[in-house]
Design a protein around this nucleic acid. Structure first.
Lengths: 117, 117
DNA sequence: TATAGTGTTATGATTAGTCAAGTATTTGAA
DNA sequence: TTCAAATACTTGACTAATCATAACACTATA
């Protein structure tokens, strides 16, 4: 799995760059949507799914697990049967509000119309 | 950001929400890396590829084309043979610096160590 | 002449994401 | 009572995205 790194002449060293890592975390599909939704307050799984809009449960479960692992989201199980869970942002997750706000401002200014692809 | 308090309803209208669209644009793999790299200044294709680090040329070409279409990146062909091109950020692209900076600050504060997956 | 550079595009393989359906249980309505 | 809907996911099959690699035409340097 370890890959031989190209000669040092022209390759940039990403060995540990916080911005690079942060971008890698946030760039996964649905991640930013999930965080934005949770900025509104804690939500259960299906509630989150509906609010995010369009993410299928398999992907959502995987994303939420990874975010929990990264300390961005916390999961609380209130009762096992009937199942009742809630997902909330940790401090690190709340701190992403500044990122979402920056995206929000940019979007309002530079995406005034629906994007046709 | 407007914190629309949705007490019980939980169904959100995404008909046209600039933040939602902006997130969709920025969440695609390599997009933020490309923009961050170009904040450093205009680059040629291979130069960009090296600086971004790890993106394969097919994907990079596709991303860059989409970003050009969205008015975030501009492409200038200086000569066809030998090929010489340069990719640069437009005004809308430059405006994403605030987003990258927010991610940067977050990363430095909350990702102090390499993320093990 | 040989090697490395330019900007792409083509290939076929791998990985990531999607879809529909199912699990076990309770709550609320008919 | 019995049925439908809700809860939080999981599973397996499928498709779309991304991957590494190589090719192309051509120049500039060694």
């Amino acid at each position: 799995m370890a890959k031989l790194v190209a000669p040092e002449t022209s390759q940039i060293d990403h060995s540990f760059c916080p911005v690079y890592e942060a971008i890698n975390v946030l760039q996964e599909k649905w991640t930013l949507h999930i965080i934005r939704t949770l900025l509104d307050g804690p939500k259960g799984f299906n509630e989150l799914s509906r609010a995010v809009g369009g993410c299928n449960p398999a992907t959502l479960a995987q994303r939420v697990e990874k975010l929990e692992h990264l300390g961005i989201v916390s999961k609380t199980i209130h009762s096992t049967m009937p199942p009742r869970t809630s997902y909330a942002l940790t401090e690190a997750g709340q701190a992403l509000q500044t990122v979402i706000e920056a995206i929000d401002r940019w979007g309002r200014q530079y995406l005034p119309e629906p994007v046709a692809l």
